[in-house]
Design a protein around this nucleic acid. Structure first.
Lengths: 217, 217
DNA sequence: TAGATTGTTAATCGATTAACAATC
DNA sequence: TAGATTGTTAATCGATTAACAATC
């Protein structure tokens, strides 16, 4: 009787949702109105049961056997589940090439947050703007943050500086860190850390490639 | 009797190796010569048994109870395992802000490959160089690739173009694709695809943050 | 010797996959 | 009605964690 929205979502499931959203939007764009789990499973190379469960978890209503679900409704439910509509502020620390690339990326709005300030130590950058986002002196981190009270910090500084920056961010009341530096951050358990481990991805791709090359000969 | 290097490594294990390498190098840099699994587990917030097994998998020799392993030897073993020394060529398609950031990143050498060419459709970019890497017209992809015979392609084009580019890359004999476009690529099973899913990471971080905010009030 | 760490086997946990009745 | 798809329960699989004897 009681809605069993008690069971929480796993990290894996959560990570699949944006892929679904993207694919469903593509289907809707070509005029398709209904979608079934087997169809999506085929398209995205996933197990059918996996897709069924993911859909069931986020959808507010049950699907109808044989005809599936309404695409628009499913997309809306996914957006609701992901709460992209409730925006959070973010700051970015380290305006190197990767930091700049992220500042240029104008799609964060779609994912529920927007970058309000960036920081660097390079005096050539401080005071300028990238796509409308002001770049402050890293020394002023605490001051600027006390005004904005951002929830999320994006770390794109060199690995060596990452821990120092993280520590400062935490005392400045950041709740979540999106870490692009190839370094392990020591933080209190209440802080949310998401590591973007490019080095790990590279290790995986490189190893699989070597394996393949060995298999060939 | 026979070395049981038969058991292959999992994706998760592989992904942890670069983190170990980085941490071990940091320890060595401050003059430490020996390392134990419990120590590393504490430092990197991992389970001890996990670290023990990871080390055992890549190390050529057994560790010595109580004193651990020689750091330099362990690092060498990890490099050997990851085969970073055997370089592969890579090309990059899509010189937008993210593509540029990756071209600027000079650390790929350390990970076993180097970018030899980039492609775009923007005539303002074509013919120029970024950090010494020439940018070609995307139309010339097949021609340039037939000379270089690169193994890896990095896709940093918009989602809409990703599949088209991937298909062309495959017929041009690319073995592995590192995909930064938020799109699912349909490829033959022999092709290695590594998705860099920033949208997934964002979904995870954003959801956890919302959860936390709900818990607080 | 005592005690910490190693290597390895067993237990647990969680996610994915399979199976199947209910339903349109 | 027949058949595909849904929701859900059970089985499998793989990775992580726990346990413990062997060793320096």
């Amino acid at each position: 009787m009681a809605k069993k929205r008690i069971l929480s979502i796993s990290k894996n499931q959560l990570g699949r949702l944006p892929n679904y959203v993207h694919h469903l939007q593509a289907l809707r764009a070509v005029g398709i109105e209904k979608v079934t789990a087997p169809q999506v499973a085929r398209d995205l190379n996933l197990n059918v049961e996996l897709v069924k469960k993911d859909f069931a978890l986020v959808a507010k209503r049950q699907g109808t056997p044989r005809s599936g679900r309404d695409i628009s409704e499913l997309i809306t439910d996914m957006y609701d589940f992901l709460e992209y509509s409730q925006h959070d502020k973010a700051i970015l620390i380290g305006v190197g090439s990767l930091g700049k690339a992220l500042l240029h990326y104008r799609g964060f709005d779609d994912y529920g947050f927007n970058i309000v300030a960036a920081f660097d130590v390079d005096s050539a950058l401080i005071g300028s703007k990238v796509d409308g986002i002001p770049i402050y002196n890293l020394d002023d981190l605490e001051k600027v943050q006390s005004e904005h009270r951002s929830q999320i910090a994006i770390i794109t500084v060199p690995a060596k500086e990452a821990q120092k920056v993280a520590t400062r961010l935490i005392s400045a009341n950041i709740a979540a860190i999106w870490n692009f530096a190839p370094a392990h951050l020591k933080v209190p358990s209440r802080i949310i850390v998401q590591d973007e481990n490019m080095a790990s991805s590279l290790a995986i791709i490189s190893h699989r490639l070597k394996e393949k090359q060995r298999a060939k000969k």
